[in-house]
Design a binder for these strands. Structure first.
Lengths: 201, 201
DNA sequence: CGGCTCCCGGGACATTTGTCACGGCCAGGT
DNA sequence: ACCTGGCCGTGACAAATGTCCCGGGAGCCG
């Protein structure tokens, strides 16, 4: 029996996947969580063979949780299942030691097949996405540029970002300006969108 | 047998729901589409009793499609199934003649139960969401303010918006300013976010 | 009819934002 | 020891943005 952990914030999606996978004759869902910061605890408790993780979760990113599992539960393989096939996400997933990366498009049959594949020690990635991730190159933004950009997502002013990051307003503007330059965009919002599309956020 | 139409852009979600609902003894999924502009055609072809529509779809909004079904296939009940329980969405869904409004959180069991409820002529809405929609009041933005705000989502400049809407830059700035005032926000991006959270976009 | 609101535009103004040039500090590699 | 690159800050400047005035026209309603 393949023991599965399911981490997904949308209740209906989580429930549907759990029912479907539970119907496979060789699988059972031994844990379900809706938050990223519950993944490690649940994994330690229920000892799954494969953890199916969404990326964008409340509490803690699925990518961070994947890295945690690498050290806390090394014999649990991680399969990332996400809505967005962003190149940067794929790259970070691989660096976090994930064994596979699936997008939520594509047929459901793909899911069970990929789980078995991962359990056999193979790595499963959408070829087109892998090509995009390689051609895009690594994240050119520095840590602070990312911080500034991330703090700017919801329309915060320079003053807001500066106080949130304990920086001077001038510094914040310099970071934003260089981030805008590196993304080849015209203003803060375009830079944010470009960075998110690449999975750099 | 209850005949169902399923409109949902995420392949995995669509497939999972189709399988689950198909397993109910009194239901069958007679049509599945991944785009909003295929809903009416599919409904005319397969004559479903209930159409399960996501809102944010490529091609055409599920809300617009619901309004279309009202006239093109009047005996097909519409059940909106969406990720975001925005007050404005609920309001528009009701105005479009929807028989129910579900969010994708909450358990899967809710789904089949709601479908049967809708078919009995009842209206199904999350009470908390209904309260929020009523207390929020109607959309205070004028049509042009909405247009300007919608065109500003991805970091477009005033010049971009002006040329996209065939307006003068002064006019665009006036619309944006009044939208910012009505949403009680400080700049364009906060206004966009506030409007989207309310479902006013 | 007068009043109202929405649509569209112009002009002036303060504020914010984005850019550039310039410092200094510290860690890393050659 | 030197250079490079990230980090943090300043000051100044042009451009974009947001606000407040002001018009006129169209439609709707009491």
């Amino acid at each position: 029996m393949i023991r599965l952990l399911l981490a997904e914030d949308q209740g209906m999606m989580r429930g549907a996947l759990a029912l479907l996978l539970g119907m496979e004759h060789d699988m059972e869902v031994v844990a379900q969580v809706g938050r990223g910061d519950e993944i490690v605890d649940a994994a330690l408790l229920s000892r799954p063979d494969v953890a199916l993780l969404d990326i964008e979760l409340p509490g803690r990113s699925g990518l961070d949780a994947a890295a945690d599992l690498r050290t806390e539960a090394p014999d649990c393989r991680v399969l990332i299942l996400t809505t967005f096939g962003r190149p940067g996400y794929l790259r970070r997933a691989m660096e976090a030691g994930a064994a596979g990366f699936l997008v939520k498009d594509g047929p459901v049959e793909e899911l069970a097949a990929s789980i078995r594949q991962v359990l056999r020690g193979e790595t499963v990635i959408d070829p087109a996405l892998a090509a995009a991730a390689l051609s895009a190159g690594p994240n050119p933004l520095t840590a602070r540029e990312r911080d500034a950009l991330a703090a700017a997502v919801d329309g915060a002013t320079v003053a807001d970002i500066a106080s949130a990051l304990h920086l001077s307003e001038s510094t914040v503007r310099n970071y934003l300006s260089s981030a805008i330059g590196k993304t080849g965009t015209r203003n803060r919002m375009e830079a944010v969108r470009a960075a998110r599309r690449q999975g750099w956020l």
